[in-house]
């Protein structure tokens, strides 16, 4: 009915006017600095490739981003309820689903901003310290998971790595957003979604080994998409994994919007 971009502007304002947003962003960048600098001074391998550092920092950085996005997603809805401001927000000439959509988009934009920052900063910062001749992905990573080998440069692999992790990030942030909306408790949303992120790393692959067909349809078996870069995982293809995630994503979104639309905003 009116200008939707104004809603986005509001939600972004509420994210970036908070000190914690800048603390989180600062921590993310500090992580890169505090991994690169000590390695530079302590490493005896003078020809170490920058992509080695980029690899480790991106892996850890993504975990941080998943947590931070959960914090922002949880804050976006649950905190409006705990602070009571939801009552002022919902009595404006806007349908509820649009208000929720503006919140979700701003959360995704926050995640995207963090990812872009991490990507650019890991490359720029390590470029200053380490060897930046072109290397193959295999030299840096070695491959244990998946069936095939990754043919290609480390730089291209890094880009694909970011894409794979970002898909998973979209799913986990949707989960955080859903928990935040359904339970109206920021703590629960943050805690549970962080648990999911970490369990997808540790438990996911183990459950993936269970030899039942239904296991393939559990979403958190597929939260780690990186192994697919080197081929199929067991008899599962990347397309299949993404399809399963997409179905869950749609279900979570449907539930989130349904609950928010129907909820009685009571005492």
């Amino acid at each position: 009915m009116y200008n939707f971009s104004k809603l986005l502007l509001n939600e972004n304002m509420k994210i970036y006017l908070r000190t914690r947003t800048w603390i989180m962003t600062g921590l993310l960048l500090a992580l890169v600095v505090f991994m690169t600098v000590p390695v530079y001074f302590m490493s005896k391998d003078s020809a170490m490739s920058m992509w080695t550092l980029v690899k480790y920092e991106s892996a850890v950085g993504y975990l941080l981003i998943a947590m931070f996005t959960a914090v922002v997603a949880a804050g976006s809805v649950a905190e409006e309820f705990t602070s009571g401001t939801i009552k002022l927000l919902l009595i404006r000439p806007w349908m509820r689903w649009k208000i929720l959509l503006s919140k979700y988009i701003s959360v995704v934009l926050f995640a995207l901003l963090q990812v872009v920052l991490l990507y650019a900063f890991t490359i720029a910062f390590n470029f200053l310290f380490f060897d930046h001749t072109n290397v193959t992905a295999e030299e840096i990573h070695g491959f244990f998971v998946g069936d095939g080998q990754y043919e290609g440069s480390a730089a291209v692999y890094n880009m694909k790595y970011y894409a794979m992790r970002f898909i998973a990030l979209l799913v986990t942030s949707m989960i955080a957003f859903m928990l935040s909306t359904v339970f109206r408790s920021g703590g629960l949303a943050i805690g549970l979604s962080i648990f999911l992120v970490f369990s997808s790393i540790s438990i996911g692959p183990i459950i993936g080994l269970i030899d039942y067909k239904w296991v393939d349809y559990l979403f958190f078996v597929h939260l780690d998409l990186v192994p697919y870069l080197t081929g199929n995982v067991g008899d599962r293809t990347l397309g299949f994994a993404i399809s399963v995630l997409a179905v869950y994503y749609a279900l979570f979104a449907a539930l989130t919007w349904f609950v928010f639309e129907k909820r009685d905003v009571g005492a």
Partner: peptide, 19 residues
């Protein structure tokens, strides 16, 4: 209940944008 981490003015700007 208003957004405590924003100024009074920012709160008003926030709600002004919605109409």
């Amino acid at each position: 209940e208003m957004y405590k981490y924003m100024t009074g003015y920012q709160n008003l700007v926030h709600f002004a944008r919605m109409v």
